[in-house]
Write a protein that binds this DNA or RNA. Structure first.
Lengths: 271, 271
DNA sequence: CGGTTTTTTGATGGACGTCAACCCAAGTGG
DNA sequence: CCACTTGGGTTGACGTCCATCAAAAAACCG
């Protein structure tokens, strides 16, 4: 089913972009292997040889790095239809570990096969360069965000981004279902119309570079402010507009409390 | 002079790697335009259309982004023989501005021409993917460093990296000179055998995500500790071994003052 | 030698980490 | 059905790293 790959690829590069028929044929010649993992499972570790690249079909996982002092930095989360560790296409070893957050199905493609495919199709190589560039732009945004924004802003941005990416993957699912109605697979859980982010606070902390405690405090602030609500182990985004205000630029100084007026400007892929 | 490009490319990917004769011929067919800029000059701004990619031939420059609150984040410095803004190969606009630090000569290549070259040579596309991947790995390192390391560690690492890259570019110059002795260009300044980094503290601050004041304080610490010495507007690395210890992992806690024993482990391209 | 840019230093405060509890839900075994 | 465990979340007290404000000294430059 290279169709999933194609949709994920295009969806990841530029929403709605699509490949030529020739490219689809080309990708169809790389049949992926499917692997399932339970939640909280190590898929691969930092330093292990990397011969494949992965596409998330179902579930959520993340790449991370361990530091000598025992702490951990989460590099990136991956939601359904997203490609994992693209930057390592040309590297022999994984520069970061991969773990699952929920039960996950991964499609595994052979790197060499794809790379060989570059010979037959310059379009394919251009596509991969576009994708990698996009990821690099995201990394840059994150880098700027981590140093220059306050914990509140980072948190707001994080929630918005996760929400956006989750919704996008759901949308792609829907598109595929309506495209070919041969399958009877329907979303079994009651899909909430409200945005619900289910990521443990530890992981948020390791992603934003904060301590758990402070993550919790920020979340309490946002809760008291009415932006979010905690629903069991999940976080519900109840006032997205306010969150965008905070993520973009909130006037923190009490001298000029222009509450949530300024528009959200810097964003990774939200907006 | 596509020879410079080739050396820069290979030097940037993996030290000492070299392209096939066929690739050299291919690159020779993309004659670059040469541009000169004075120091502290804007080469291009964030958001401007990006039709070329650049190779630094002489001088130092850096990419940066401005935030709404007036502060600035330096994304990356570029030394001679390094390629600027590779990640934007497939993007229509610059995602960051470029400024010169010193008087600079840039070689300008047309992006479209190179991209077209992918059709004729899959090797070329693989090469560019390798280069972009490398830059992405560096970005990841930086991202981890910014959140997880103290100002001291970041500073030590910064100094070591700049020193390393400067030396590498000098080495490439030397190799080229010894390769073909047709030019009489010799280093005019007395090349100091000691490592000297000449970057204003403001730029270091904007790069490491610190305030000028704190950068200065850290530098004073390192000076009192004997790791560095300030020589006019330059910073001399007098005890590189100690710096590596600090950058890697310094036991900051006074309970176990193992001074500079632990080896340097995490590094972007130092080592 | 002024004038400007860069560096240096002190004092003060805020944002965030650390330590140390306590709470709550879900499972597990008797 | 209840003790026990386990994994997360919540909260307070306290300390530290680093930003900010303010001002002077040094280095550079014409």
């Amino acid at each position: 089913m290279a169709r999933a790959l194609i949709q994920a690829l295009t969806g990841n590069v530029e929403f709605g972009e699509s490949l030529s028929a020739k490219e689809r044929l080309l990708l169809n010649s790389f049949p992926p292997q499917k692997l399932e993992f339970e939640k909280n499972t190590v898929v691969f570790r930092e330093g292990e040889p990397a011969n494949q690249f992965l596409l998330v079909e179902k579930g959520v996982c993340f790449t991370h790095r361990h530091l000598e002092d025992g702490s951990r930095q989460i590099i990136e989360f991956y939601f359904p239809r997203e490609v994992v560790a693209l930057g390592e296409l040309s590297k022999a070893h994984h520069s970061a570990g991969l773990m699952t957050l929920s039960d996950t199905v991964l499609a595994v493609y052979d790197k060499d096969e794809i790379t060989q495919g570059f010979s037959e199709s310059p379009e394919l190589s251009r596509l991969f360069i576009r994708m990698i560039s996009k990821q690099q732009a995201n990394l840059t945004e994150r880098l700027v965000g981590l140093t220059r924004y306050s914990a509140r802003q980072r948190m707001a941005h994080f929630l918005l981004e996760v929400d956006f990416r989750l919704k996008r993957s759901e949308m792609l699912d829907f598109q595929e279902l309506s495209g070919k109605c041969s399958q009877t697979v329907m979303p079994e859980e009651t899909t909430p119309n409200r945005s619900l982010v289910k990521i443990p606070q530890v992981l948020i902390a390791d992603s934003l570079g904060l301590s758990i405690v402070h993550v919790n405090r920020i979340l309490r602030q946002l809760r008291e402010q009415g932006c979010i609500a905690t629903r069991g182990y999940g976080i519900e985004l109840s006032d997205i507009k306010a969150l965008k205000g905070i993520a973009g630029w909130a006037a923190e100084n009490p001298t000029a409390p222009k509450d949530a007026v300024t528009p959200a400007i810097p964003s990774i892929s939200v907006e």
